[in-house]
Nucleic acid binder design. Structure first.
Length: 677
RNA sequence: GGGCCCGUAGCUCAGCGGUGAGAGCAGGGGACUCAUAAUCCCUUGGUCGGGGGUUCGAAUCCCUCCGGGCCUACCA
């Protein structure tokens, strides 16, 4: 087979936070693929970098009272340390804040200019006069202009789903400084991506560059209509690169981030005497991006557009994976499932996570669930019980004799496992690691009965059986070594240890096809510890916020809600009494069939006073559990006609929305109709 | 409302038109004692979500319904 030339990237982690186990899904997935390709004898390089620019970094550096460069340098050190500890081996790990990146951004920019893709337009945005910066949507909070719920982000309302511009918000507040933002207009630069519409349809819908469901998604959601212009500049101050021909404007972080792939490759080329064009402008190179589904849009539309316009290779394939859940739920800080890589390392072996992820990862975008019980069971049963056990039960019998000079008859076991190699390789190639792991474990399941039947511990007792003993162990250790080779992309350390044990380093997939004979066998050392569920629990405890883990109950409530939604401007008592809050009893409640969030409530204010209210609490409450209970409603709110009928008020509740909505109740004794003062 | 995916043994999943539906784990019984309470043998367990259709033949293809997930839209 002709060696392929393959360049692989994983998404660039943002320099605003440490690596956690959710990130690791991607870097491990990618690392396995790269190691597999290398083992198969292909030229393959794994390129990554820190993503360092943008408002968030600038703000954080300011808050911490230091320069951005200091911040990103430290974060990068942490990232690289964590990756290395998980055996994620990059060929080059760069930074988007590098001279190489600045140069390449300029080059691509010129290409976009030359292709007449860049236009200018005024953008009206909110500006924080105190922080002296324009505010991205998520840095503004205010009252939704449609449903009047407070504390909504600048682009859409969590409560009613309305979309609007940040300047439409009522009483907007900057989350950076708490100041009231001003409306300001600035000149922005845009890429007219729609000029590449035909190309993008062609590229996304053909050639298997994308998983099928991704291609369908793009077709249905973006490509069926003209693509909007992409705003790729930000006015100063902004931490990033200033646009050379547009002083005072900076490239938006999502412009320079993917170019970081090129820049990091450039660094690698400079270190290894290679040419960038051999990797990014050559029909002989494959480019594979691994990303999470959240950034699909950037990598499948903008990025190919940028590459196309500037004459670089297009991605051969963009491999997209889902998110990590833990125990079937989103990672949660309070539950201790938001586990940092560094916390994991304090308690558990990185090999375990690599194997578990591999056993769960398929070629699709499905979310991957880390179930902690399954994690321990699987690692212990598969790796320790089956695989490593093969070596630990036989190696010491041949410490003095070494492996037999001729590979003995094993009833075809080695040949069968060798033959399975191509299937396993195909599964790796297709990112179907769960299938690969299954196939490998099937082999392991056949190897242990062989040892059982041959009973080397009995042979050992009879000196006349010395040759037979050595043969049996030679078979067992060869079957073990085959597994170690097949698992090498996932478990590089096990492969190394196996190489040392049998005095023949594992460097190539094809070593799985020929039995190893005649080598000395080193003194056996433990290859892998079992998972102790206690350690898993300790890791979870360690991941809980300090206040949650404390023994004495302290009321250390998080400051997050206030940060999300700062306290509104002072109002007078007169303002307050304008709002007539009343206790009301829910006398009927039903789901609105066509609405995802709405329940239709009939509220009684006592007597025969009834109000119909549509409340966005469907995801949080069952209609049945509401009937009869007392709630607090805004009784003098102007009626509003909705698609499903007229809403004659609103019930008050706290929480960010969705299933996290908490209705206000009243203590016992209150009756419907009473005003809340 | 639209798109995609998934519903197969208690759990995780394989099988995706053709011998009586499988594996691992868990459960039950036995064996062994070399090995990290590992291993080996036997075994319990399933209307393959429901219903219709195509076919000589369907878990496997088509339709429909139910349930779950992810994404997206609308409505407030």
């Amino acid at each position: 087979m002709k060696p392929r030339r393959i360049l692989v990237t994983a998404a660039l982690p943002y320099a605003n936070g440490p690596i956690h186990i959710g990130h690791l899904v991607e870097y491990i997935q990618t690392d396995i693929w790269v190691r597999f390709q290398k083992l198969r004898g292909h030229r393959c390089i794994y390129i990554c970098a820190d993503d360092t620019h943008g408002t968030a970094i600038m703000i954080r550096a300011r808050q911490e009272g230091r320069g951005e460069e200091e911040l990103i340098t430290e974060m990068q050190r942490q990232h690289e340390r964590d990756f290395a500890a998980f055996d994620i081996q990059f060929d080059n790990y760069g930074s988007t804040h590098s001279p190489e990146n600045r140069r390449l951004c300029g080059e691509i920019w010129q290409s976009l200019r030359a292709a007449r893709l860049i236009v200018e337009d005024d953008v009206t945005q909110l500006y924080d006069p105190q922080a002296q910066t324009f505010l991205a949507d998520r840095f503004v909070r205010g009252t939704c202009p449609r449903c009047r719920s407070a504390g909504q982000y600048g682009d859409n309302c969590q409560k009613c789903g309305a979309t609007y511009r940040p300047s439409d918000l009522i009483d907007p507040v900057s989350t950076l400084s708490g100041a009231t933002p001003e409306v300001r207009t600035a000149r922005h630069l845009f890429v007219q991506l729609n000029q590449l519409h035909d190309f993008l349809v062609e590229w996304t819908q053909s050639g298997r560059h994308l998983q099928e469901e991704v291609a369908n998604y793009l077709k249905g959601h973006f490509l069926h209509e003209p693509l909007r212009d992409w705003d790729i500049s930000r006015p100063a101050p902004y931490f990033g690169f200033e646009i050379p021909d547009s002083p005072g404007n900076y490239w938006y972080v999502w412009f320079d981030a993917p170019i970081g792939y090129l820049a990091s490759t450039q660094q690698w080329c400079d270190l290894h005497g290679e040419r960038l064009d051999d990797w990014w402008r050559s029909p002989d190179t494959e480019i594979h991006h691994f990303i999470g589904k959240d950034i699909t849009y950037f990598h499948t539309l903008f990025w190919p557009g940028m590459l196309k316009s500037s004459g670089f290779n297009l991605p051969t394939k963009v491999h997209i994976h889902g998110f990590l859940t833990v125990g079937g739920e989103k990672m949660s800080k309070s539950q201790g499932t938001f586990v940092m890589a560094s916390t994991y390392l304090q308690h558990l072996d990185p090999a375990w996570l690599r194997y578990y992820y591999a056993a769960k990862l398929g070629p699709r975008l499905d979310d991957l669930d880390l179930n902690l019980d399954e994690f321990a069971a699987k690692v212990n049963a598969d790796l320790v019980g089956k695989v490593v056990n093969l070596a630990s039960r036989t190696a010491k019998f041949v410490e003095t004799s070494g492996l037999s000079p001729v590979y003995p008859d094993d009833g075809g076991l080695f040949q069968q496992a060798a033959a399975a190699g191509e299937l396993i390789a195909e599964a790796y190639e297709n990112c179907d690691y769960s299938r690969a792991m299954r196939l490998i474990m099937e082999l392991a399941d056949r190897a242990n009965p062989y040892v059982e039947a041959a009973a080397p511990w009995n042979l050992k007792k009879d000196p006349a059986e010395a040759d037979r003993l050595r043969d049996v162990c030679t078979v067992a250790l060869n079957l073990f070594r085959q597994l170690a080779i097949y698992l090498a992309p996932v478990l590089p350390r096990l492969a190394e240890q196996t190489g040392r044990l049998l005095n023949d380093p594992i460097t190539a997939w094809r070593q799985s096809q020929i039995p190893l004979t005649g080598t000395p066998v080193a003194r056996f050392e433990h290859l892998m510890k079992r998972v102790d569920p206690k350690d898993v629990l300790a890791m979870i405890e360690d991941s809980k916020p300090a206040e949650a883990a404390g023994q004495t109950p302290q009321f250390q409530d998080s400051d997050q809600p206030l940060r999300d939604e700062p306290i509104a401007e002072t109002c007078s008592i007169d303002d307050f009494v304008k709002v007539d809050l009343r206790v009301a009893r829910v006398v009927a409640a039903e789901a609105v069939p066509d609405a995802r969030k709405l329940l239709k409530l009939t509220l009684s204010l006592g007597g025969d006073q009834r109000r119909t209210v549509f409340a966005g609490i469907k995801q949080a409450y069952e209609p049945d559990q509401l009937i009869g209970r007392l709630v607090v409603m805004v009784a003098n709110l102007a009626p509003r006609t909705m698609k499903f009928g007229v809403s004659e008020g609103m019930v008050v509740a706290s929480g960010p929305g969705g299933s996290d909505v908490f209705l206000l109740g009243v203590d016992a004794g209150a009756v419907p109709g009473q005003r809340v003062h």
